[in-house]
Nucleic acid binder design. Structure first.
Length: 739
DNA sequence: TTAGGGTTAG
């Protein structure tokens, strides 16, 4: 074969021409150069700089090979620095294909992968021929950037060069299409090729799985000639992604039966599936398996996944023990622990841990706040919520995380500041479906039915498609405002116009509406026509309606359903005994009381919290533990006196047990919300709004009293009970006494 | 002559 001039190594030519070599000394000398060996083990930018300066001192940087290695480190190492790689790159007059590939690869790993395509084009314009390495890098960039149009053009280049048979290029093409939902194109590439290994199968499987086509994925999986652990992992992850956790975990079992050794990814995927599905037993088994097979102290990812799994499966102690045992926590360690507390409704613990995090050297990120904001919302701690909102505005300026804004809206609404929620919502552009839903539900719980309905109409006008959650908000707006007709209208519109089948929550709203309107026959018909079994909430709202309308017999019937459905819930017993008490049937009250006692259940004690100067104070019914107890009770006496002077007569019919009138009144005056209000009155400035959060529904007596208190003391009192908000102002309540 | 494809904790 004749040698063409271009195939003769440049340094040989150079020596033949007796000029200084324009290119590198022999590869073997360079490859084993101590500085470059050091570079391959380098784990920090500091170490890189030392090696770099040594390379410059020895003159090695004049070789293209050493420059390639320096660029490679900067562009692709996790300890690298892409801008610096580009600086080095631009200093090279004629980069070779390896260097071009490395720069493209660097961008494919960066947060702005589309730039890789720019360099790919530049490379072609410079006359550098792509090779089989170029395509996996640039196609990965297209896949990540969603640049299907560019990807298709590059696909044409692949065909032109005849590289579609290269296993790496082949899989990269499939992956590029599959990751962007172009399943037909992915399939076409896959089917056309004779070279199908487990990797290309898995790329396609992942594409199908990500769009929910698990059955297609399964067919492909069964066809893989030699399955490897990643194929199994992809199937497990696919089922988990489609919320088909049982099948995901069954696949894991199958994999074990087939004696396929799981790897770390398998464990991470399975732990995540256990966490999401709350599979305690399997989770524990995986935990001990991991303890046996891994050195946990050196694998933060696994520990974090274990914390997540343990906490979501309800074992917060194990989760916390693991968390406390970590030497160097990363942001995910904090996030899973905080999120775990929130997930299990341990809101105070979530906030306490968040405070600890703020004092640590780990900065919270958006996921942290997504764990913390719901905790603020549930506890109704407005001051902390506001602080977090300001923190987000300050630190996440360029981040338009839709779910964060939705969480902020939800937090403000649940903390009683509906105006702030509206302000955040109005400032959102674009507005996600979730944010519309949060705003509609927020307005609903504050009793602003008209506003909620207007918003719903705006949303439909804007071309958004409401979902089932939108209608829960809308129907609950009707519920809280007693708008029966409107509720009926939206209920049927949901089914007919929007093709959404009603869920338990929608039925719950309707039955609540009908029950409170006293339309028991229609409510019962509604229950009979449901496609699913009614749950405790539905029977519960009907029972509440029975109490409201004094329907003793129906109440007894409904309560039996509840006793059966939720034997551990004392609420039904309390409601039924209230119905008896309302009818003066004290023997029956006593009977229910005994039944409750025999079952070892206690009425959930009323508890009200109030945040003053960012400190949360909690009051239990009749509680006397607060350090300012004396002052609070002094204030209570004054409140009672003023109420009496204003002509207030306590309604004692709602007290659970048959006691003499004076005792009853005493118990009423010590209801937790009254204690909290008294504390609010003595510990905040005159005229300041008082915000309280109660764990149960406010009783009729406290409701009437609070209305008067708002007038006597000239205070706006915003109260959240178990069900909704009451804005007390100048002697009346926003709920118009309908709740 | 250096490198490359699929899964993977919040």
């Amino acid at each position: 074969m004749l040698l063409s001039p271009s195939s003769v190594p440049v340094h040989i030519l150079a020596s033949a021409l007796h000029v200084a070599p324009a290119s590198d000394p022999p590869y073997k000398l360079l490859e084993s150069h101590p500085s470059l060996l050091l570079l391959s083990k380098c784990k920090s930018i500091h170490g890189f700089k030392q090696i770099h300066s040594h390379i410059v001192k020895t003159g090695l940087h004049n070789t293209l090979f050493a420059l390639s290695k320096l660029i490679e480190f900067c562009a692709t190492s996790p300890f690298g620095d892409l801008p610096y790689a580009l600086l080095l790159f631009e200093s090279i007059p004629e980069p070779n294909v390896f260097i071009w590939n490395t720069i493209i690869r660097g961008h494919s790993l960066s947060s702005n992968p589309i730039l890789a395509v720019d360099f790919y084009v530049r490379m072609l314009l410079c006359g550098t021929q792509q090779n089989s390495y170029t395509f996996p890098f640039v196609l990965k960039s297209c896949a990540k950037a969603g640049a299907i149009h560019e990807g298709k053009q590059i696909h044409a280049h692949v065909l032109k060069l005849g590289l579609e048979c290269d296993a790496f290029v082949h899989t990269s093409l499939i992956n590029m299409y599959a990751q962007n939902g172009e399943l037909d194109d992915a399939r076409l590439v896959f089917d056309k090729s004779a070279f199908r290994d487990a990797v290309s199968f898995t790329a396609l499987i992942t594409g199908y799985a990500s769009r929910g086509y698990m059955d297609a994925a399964r067919l492909l999986f069964d066809e893989i000639p030699v399955r490897d652990v990643v194929s199994w992992n992809a199937m497990i992850a696919g089922y988990a992604q489609c919320f088909r956790f049982e099948e995901a975990l069954a696949f894991f079992e199958e994999m074990r039966k087939m004696k396929v050794p799981p790897n770390e990814s398998t464990m991470l995927t399975v732990l995540s599936a256990c966490a999401q599905s709350g599979s305690v037993e399997l989770g524990n088994w995986v935990h001990s398996w991991i303890e046996d097979h891994y050195e946990l102290g050196s694998n933060l990812r696994l520990v974090n996944a274990l914390i997540d799994m343990s906490s979501k499966c309800g074992d917060l102690e194990t989760a916390r023990r693991l968390f406390d045992g970590i030497h160097q926590r990363d942001v995910i360690s904090w996030n899973v622990m905080i999120g775990g507390y929130t997930h299990m409704s341990f809101y105070k613990e979530a906030l306490a841990l968040f405070q600890l995090m703020l004092g640590s050297d780990t900065e919270p990120n958006d996921v942290t706040l997504l764990g913390v904001l719901p905790a603020c919302a549930h506890l109704g701690v407005l001051d902390l919520g506001k602080w977090i909102h300001a923190y987000i505005d300050k630190n996440f300026e360029n981040m338009t995380n839709g779910s964060l804004s939705t969480s902020i809206i939800d937090m403000y609404a649940k903390c009683g500041n509906i105006e702030a929620a509206e302000q955040v919502f109005d400032g959102l552009n674009p507005k996600s479906l979730a944010s519309w839903n949060a705003m509609i539900s927020g307005l609903a719980m504050h009793g602003h039915a008209d506003k909620a309905i207007r918003l719903f109409e705006q949303m439909v006008d804007a071309g958004l498609k409401p979902d089932d959650i939108t209608f829960v908000g809308l129907l609950s707006a009707c519920t809280h405002a007693g708008r029966l007709e409107l509720g009926r209208q939206y209920f049927s519109s949901m089914i007919q116009d929007f093709n959404i089948s009603p869920k338990l929550e929608h039925y719950g709203c309707m039955i609540d509406l009908l029950g409170r309107a006293g339309m028991f026959d229609e409510a019962e018909a509604f229950i009979k026509n449901m496609e699913m079994e009614p749950d405790g909430a539905i029977w519960g709202s009907l029972l509440g309606a029975c109490r409201l309308h004094g329907r003793v017999e129906l109440g007894e019937y409904v309560a039996e359903h509840l006793f059966e459905l939720e034997p551990e819930n004392p609420g039904a017993y309390v409601l039924l005994s209230n119905i008896y008490a309302g009818a003066g049937r004290w023997d029956d009250v006593a009977r229910i009381r005994t039944r409750l006692k025999d079952k070892g259940m206690k009425k959930v004690p009323g508890c009200t919290s109030i945040e003053v100067d960012s400190v949360v104070h909690e009051f239990l019914v009749g509680g006397k533990l607060h350090p300012l107890g004396k002052d609070i009770y002094k204030m209570l006496d004054e409140i009672d006196k003023l109420l009496e002077m204003a002509g207030f007569v306590p309604d004692t019919s709602e007290v659970l047990y048959d006691m003499d009138e004076e005792w009853k009144e005493g118990a009423l005056s010590h209801h937790s919300e009254k204690l909290a209000i008294a504390f609010g009155l003595i510990s905040t400035k005159p005229g300041a709004t008082i915000r309280i959060v109660k764990n149960l529904r406010v009783c009729g007596n406290c409701h009437s009293a609070t209305k008067l208190i708002s007038k006597i003391f000239n205070r706006e009192i915003i109260a959240r009970d178990r069900n909704r908000f009451h804005h007390f102002k100048n002697g009346s309540c926003s709920c118009k006494d309908y709740w």
